[in-house]
């Protein structure tokens, strides 16, 4: 194992971690405010990828098509989630927790089949724009440009999210709702709309993750299952509802997985799980402070 393949693999792991982070940040955000692990999150990620594919091909598979897809696909996902939230989900906020959880599961089942109906079972792919194709040589290793691009996008999303949560009014309200929802209701803020906003923003991030991952994988049915399970693990080790925890968890997961690929490709998946088990043995409540 030489330095070049090691650093390439590290880059792949880190860029995978960025995708995971964006998805998990959305999951964690919803979890923090609504206290529901959104099981449909993976499906929304998948819809993001498929929507990016459709927009991309409609616009003649051009570079500008890619950029537009990157912006529009997450909005499509946000719209889907808004419809689901306002039509059904919002009527359940007063109910037992488990019902909310099961609703997101029902949503997953329905969305999965709708994706199958809309896009069919074929594999689809999206091409990255010209400037992001190929790779650059650095320190004797060849590093794929698109992965470098992801390394820039990930921290950008993290910064935006931080600004959003800490500096905007709605972010502050949703943070307060995570800690004390009675108080938010008491000061005259419509809690239902805070929840709706949180849900839609979280789902938007899932869609963004899906659109970003589109050029690096073949888009297919079933891509939702892998990501949601990984996302659950990451959020659990990161600390429920803690966005920075999601970042740390994603990094651990992405990097251990990519080194697993080097060491034992067939069972690479075992490595991040082992890391998770170790983390949970040492800190059963996650690495960073959970919001609740």
């Amino acid at each position: 194992m030489d330095f070049a393949s090691l650093s390439t693999q590290l880059l792949v792991g880190l860029s995978r971690a960025m995708i995971l982070f964006i998805v998990c940040a959305g999951l964690s955000f919803i979890l923090g405010v609504l206290r529901v692990p959104n099981i449909a999150h993976g499906s929304l990620y998948m819809i993001g990828a498929f929507a990016a594919y459709s927009i991309f091909t409609h616009l003649g598979s051009s570079s500008s098509g890619f950029w537009l897809a990157l912006i529009l696909a997450p909005l499509v996902v946000a719209l889907v989630s808004l419809v689901a939230e306002r039509a059904l989900f919002c009527h359940l906020y007063q109910r037992e927790h488990l019902m909310l959880l099961l609703f997101t599961f029902a949503l997953m089942l329905i969305l999965d089949d709708l994706v199958k109906i809309t896009w069919g079972p074929e594999y689809c792919s999206v091409l990255a724009p010209n400037i992001l194709r190929g790779s650059v040589s650095m320190f004797g290793a060849s590093l794929p440009r698109y992965n470098l691009f992801l390394l820039i996008v990930g921290p950008l999303v993290a910064i935006f999210l931080w600004l959003f949560v800490n500096k905007t009014k709605i972010g502050k309200i949703s943070r307060a709702a995570a800690v004390d929802r009675e108080m938010v209701g008491a000061v005259g803020i419509n809690v239902s709309w805070v929840f709706a906003a949180a849900f839609v923003i979280g789902c938007f991030l899932a869609g963004l993750g899906g659109a970003l991952v589109a050029p690096t994988v073949s888009i297919c049915l079933g891509m939702d299952h892998d990501i949601i399970i990984e996302a659950f693990l990451i959020v659990t080790i990161g600390g429920l509802g803690n966005i920075w925890g999601a970042l740390v968890g994603s990094l651990i997961f992405g990097v251990t997985h990519s080194f697993g690929v080097l060491l034992w490709p067939q069972f690479a998946i075992v490595f991040p799980y082992a890391a998770v088990v170790i983390v949970l043995l040492l800190r059963p409540r996650g690495l960073l402070k959970s919001v609740w």
Binding site: L88, L92, R95, M99, L102, F103, F105, A106, L107, M108, L109, I110, D112, D113, L114, K116, I117
Partner: peptide, 14 residues
């Protein structure tokens, strides 16, 4: 589309 049916059943149940 069995899972679609299952999802609808679940929502009705909830």
């Amino acid at each position: 589309y069995w899972t679609l049916v299952l999802g609808v059943i679940l929502i009705l149940l909830i």
